[in-house]
Structures are given as C-alpha cells and as structure tokens.
Design a protein around this nucleic acid. Sequence first.
DNA 1: GTCTATACGGTGATAGAC
DNA 2: GTCTATCACCGTATAGAC
Lengths: 235, 235
Amino acid sequence: MSLEQFPEQGSGLSEKRVRSRARRRGQLIAATIDSINRIGFAETTLASVARIAGVSQASVLFHFKTKDALLVATLRHLAEEYQAAWKTALAKAPADSIERICTLAAADFEPALVERKKIAVWQALWAEAKSRPTYMRICGERDAERSAVMVAACADALRAVGRGGESAEDCAAAIDSLSDGLWQRLLADYRSFTRRDALRIVFSQLKANFPEYADQIDAAARPRRTRVTKGSKSG
Amino acid sequence: MSLEQFPEQGSGLSEKRVRSRARRRGQLIAATIDSINRIGFAETTLASVARIAGVSQASVLFHFKTKDALLVATLRHLAEEYQAAWKTALAKAPADSIERICTLAAADFEPALVERKKIAVWQALWAEAKSRPTYMRICGERDAERSAVMVAACADALRAVGRGGESAEDCAAAIDSLSDGLWQRLLADYRSFTRRDALRIVFSQLKANFPEYADQIDAAARPRRTRVTKGSKSG
DNA sequence: GTCTATACGGTGATAGAC
DNA sequence: GTCTATCACCGTATAGAC
C-alpha cells in the first residue's frame, strides 16, 4: 500500500531520490484531500492545494504535470487504500462463507477508511466520475473485484442453508448498497452518526438476511478489535 | 409542486407576468440539471447553462441574480419534487404501518425521481453540500421530515409484532440508507441496473426485516402501478 | 427581457533564476 | 526541486442599447 509508484520513469533514480519523491507526492495528495474536504471539489484549485501543503503552485505542478493528474492520483490513492483494506481483512478471515461476508461488510468501516475527510473526497470524486471517464474507470475497477468476491460468498452461504434458489447478486447488492448509503450518512450526520452505529446496522441486516447464521454473525460482530495494521508494506 | 415561487417580490406583477417568469426560471433550472448531468458540477458554468437553454449568459443572471442562486434554486426544486412525491404517495397509502413503510420505501424509486440526470445532480450537489451551508440546510430539511415519518412507522410495525424492544431508528436507517446506496448504483450502473432491480432489492430487504408481514409486503410489491400524477397542484 | 460588449479577478500552466 | 514572475484564458458579473 505504498503511496505511489512511478511506472513512467522507474529507472535511473537512486532509491533515496525515489522515496523522497514519493513522500512529497504523498504530502500533496494529502493536501488535496484536505482541500476537497474543506472547500469542496469545485473550489479546489492548485493554489488551495499548494497553500495547504505549504509549497508554491509551481511545485505542485512539478510533481504532477497537470491538475487533473493530481486529482487522478488522489482518487487512485484512495482506491488502493480501500482495496488493500478489504483484501487484508479477507486474508485474515476464516474460509467460511458467512465469515467472509461479515469480514467484507465490516471492512468498509475500518477506522482508517471512514475518516470523514476521506469519505468527503470519495463522494466528491464519485459524483464527478459520471462525466470523467478516468475517474469512472478507477472507481469501477475498485468495485468490480470486491463485488465478485461478495457475490461468491453470498452464493456459498445461501447454498449452504438450502436457499440456493435466491439471487446471490441481489443479496450482495443489498449488503453493498447498504454500506454505500451508510457511508453517505457518516458524512452527513457525522456528529450523531458514528462508525459504531454503521457497524451495528450492517450486522443487524446481515442477521436479517441470514437468520440461520445468527450466532456466527453475532460472534463476528463482537470482536470490535478491527486492527488495521495498515503500515505493513510488503518489500 | 409548482416550479418556483417568488416570495422576494410577490406583489405588483400581473399573473401573466408571474407565470411567464416562472416558466423561464423552470427552463433555466432544467438547463442547469442538464449541464450538471452532462459535464459535471465543477465544469458547469453560466455559459454552459445559457447555451443549453438557448439564451445569453446575461439572461440567466437576469432571472437568477448570481450563479449560486441558480444552483440553490435547482437544488430546492429537486428537494421539493422529492418531498411532494413521497407525501403524495403516503397520502394515498393505507394507514397500516407496514403499508406506510412499503409506500415510503417504494416512493424513492418512482420513475420521475430516478431519472438518471436527476440522480446525477443530487449526487453532485450533495457532495458539495458539506462545504456549502445552504445546500446542507436544504438537503437536511428534506431528510429530517421524511426520516421522522419512517422511524414512526417502523416503531409501530415493530411494536405490532412484539419486537418493540428493537431500535426503530436503526430499522429506519437501514431502509433509508439502502435506498441511498441503490440510488448511487442506479447512477453508476445505469445500463445493467434498473429501477426494477432496485425495487426488488428494497422489498426483499423489507421482507427480511419484517418476516411477519411477508404477505403484505409481497402484495405491496406487486402493484407496480406507481402512478405519479405529478402535475396536480393544489390551487 | 434579452441582447452585445466589457470589466475584472482568478485559474492552470510555463519560464527561468536560484 | 523550489521559488517568483508572468502569460493567456475563462469565469462571474455589470452596463447599456434595443
């Protein structure tokens, strides 16, 4: 989950140089997130990002050739973080299908992911995605892979309790759409609606959909020990 | 559900004049929706709206003093349309609590509301709302009233089946958040995901949450005769 | 009411010194 | 790499003719 790779210019740079570069880019992406969070996507300019990062406008453009490239890098960063979160969680989860469903559902609300400013940026970029093919592509890839895993887990779980005739797609769509809606609410009602509220609702809906697994779902809901361990990069 | 009222300058204008004005404003709001739908919120300018509406930029500013006023009017228009839709639906629904829940849940997906371009505008304006107090207020009012009705209906329904101990707030939040998420998906997967898919999933979740009312929910799901009758203005 | 013309500030991007 | 200075352009908004 390193911040950025540079496939464009991978060679000829000392490792130190590369890391320094990556750090700067990370700072600028963070500043972009801050800016969108504070003043919104439409109002975010190179000037606002530069000011928050404490550098000059030209410096931003030195690291990202264009404003658009900066925004795309920001979106990609969030998408990668999201993907890493659920993949890591899934890797640690038992192989049982209902456990996998619970794990995937809960992973959406890991503390690092539901930071208010990040949700704000997701919403903003996602809203713009419709008219920006590049954004759409990045977001689409994010969802496709996860969605496939969720559908498969739902199909398994349904089959295991003799409900193989029901639509696993619909089941997965219900769970995932609920997550999306709860994210939205986390952004809107951030004072009165918390991550714990969201998790409680998610698990209540899992139980409603899979009453046969009620005990297991309760058990999965209890260890609120959602260790994120995000820093661990392979290398 | 008339397009616009003019509380600011209500007097001294002939009725004809007032209506002509309202029509123009309606056209400009429609053009704004088109623009946001096509090129996104950030790229929408007075020029783009004027071009779509087929008038000059100055003409837009004659009817809406500022660009911001135009955007606020657009958001307000959508919010009023939304509110009118669920209120009308609710007025025609039986008084039974589960019927009211079904009606409210289904009202979110009336054909007039789930036009792709309208969802696109909702998403865009909602994403900006965080950094625009005025938007937030308009959206907040929209949700507060409806949410209260939904919570009350859930509380009734739960009590009626001896589950009064469960949280009606959570129940309502689950239903409403699902709707929000499904709206998002209607926008993203508009080719493969339709209004009917959304309705099917909503009703499946209602049944999962209220298995005691399965028959009634099925019955409510069947009459897909969602007449909108939107034109009827009280006069 | 609608237009054309225009003022004026801010925006993304470049040039070139350090 | 980072800065200041600068460019061309485009955004909102206004003025004034018709």
